[in-house]
Design a protein around this nucleic acid. Structure first.
Lengths: 211, 211
DNA sequence: CCAGGCATCCCATAAAAGGGGGATATTGGG
DNA sequence: CCCAATATCCCCCTTTTATGGGATGCCTGG
């Protein structure tokens, strides 16, 4: 028996989903709410296996709700449900740890299948969402091998600040050392990286995935 | 009618799949081969809509076959089929442009559904594969979306050289313009990117995947 | 036509970075 | 114990950047 929690602001849809789920073999609806304003308390109290979460809701939205749940209850599965499948929203949800991303046009029977999958440790993704993900990978930059330039810990530290756009003076302030010391470190870093400017060092740091 | 091509070295499985697909409404098997040794010719001749490709085959393997097909016929959908769902293989296939990644244990009915999805422009992913992908996103915040800072073509060009570690003077030489013009462009670029130094601009260029 | 964006060029000044030298102290391994 | 690497600091000098002002044409869309 999979215990579900629904978050969906549209009342007819919320009730429709409740009825569908509640009336299906192996499913049980523990609660259905129109917003995430008390999501942490509700999840704590009702202990669902899977949460079905609309993204566009007034008040605390679905993405925020997802993050709240995953922060407190990482073991609870959360499946996002939405009409939008634009790139950014999908990836935001993924990065926030969603266990699935389904479109509202998904037929009810499929919906139940997906929820089963998620309950069993899989992830749910509609074909169009999966497509976007695959395309992202196809166009992803090639993963390069990390190179080792034998930078000392301190040097790596300095390089980090450098990459983040800090001036020598600011780095000196951050590390509580003098400007001269920063300059010394940077001279050494350039030597080890075989570069002659901040920009080259930064580019090298990114290209060679120094961190 | 979806025209399929199968690549699978295991004879019983190949014939089983052929029979399943061939006997199903809306599907047609144009060919079934035990390896990818002549994959380009076969695809060119048989013009399939979707190719179902085993990963582990003797001779030219499935991954290589995938790449061969996608290089020559990017419009042909290729779905990978395998027993392995280890991270690296999945990831490799995705990067090579696979339109789907299915496990061999996928039930026949599901398999047909997935192929339909792929034919209609979606992507196919079994729940366990989808899970891995989502976890990758959750644990690897590396993948970002491109942002648009409305840089003009010329400005992008200048930024490119900047990123590559060229000094203003060198850029001026490269673009056959005066140092002053380079400076003007860079002022404008900084304005648009909301930064105040070369380093910040370079870092932003990498982080926001400006190219 | 005219405003706005773009590309081009110029000047001046202050801040930052790069390159060369050198010094001192600590530390860990052979 | 000594050496090499590291981390810290200092000076001098040149080049490069950053930022603030301009100006001039060219083109395009309202």
């Amino acid at each position: 028996m999979i215990k579900l929690l629904l978050y969906e602001d549209n009342k007819p849809l919320r009730e429709g989903l409740s009825m569908l789920m509640g009336g299906s073999e192996g499913f049980m609806v523990a609660g259905a709410f129109p917003n995430c304003n008390n999501v942490v308390e509700e999840v704590a109290l009702l202990k669902p296996d899977v949460v079905l979460m609309d993204i566009n809701m007034p008040g605390v939205g679905g993405l925020a709700g997802l993050k709240l749940i995953k922060n407190q209850f990482p073991e609870v599965k959360v499946v996002m449900l939405t009409v939008f499948d634009d790139n950014q929203t999908v990836f935001d949800a993924m990065k926030a740890g969603a266990d699935g991303y389904l479109l509202k046009k998904t037929p009810p029977a499929k919906l139940l299948e997906y929820l089963q999958d998620v309950y069993q440790g899989g992830a749910a993704m509609t074909a169009s969402v999966a497509r976007q993900v695959l395309q992202l990978f196809a166009h992803a930059p090639v993963i390069e091998q990390k190179k080792d330039y034998q930078l000392s810990d301190r040097e790596k530290e300095v390089l980090q600040w450098l990459v983040n756009g800090y001036s020598y003076k600011m780095i000196a302030g951050q590390l509580f050392i003098s400007l001269e010391t920063v300059r010394s470190h940077i001279k050494k870093i350039y030597e080890k990286l075989h570069v002659h400017s901040k920009t080259e060092a930064v580019t090298k740091a990114y290209k060679d995935k120094l961190f």
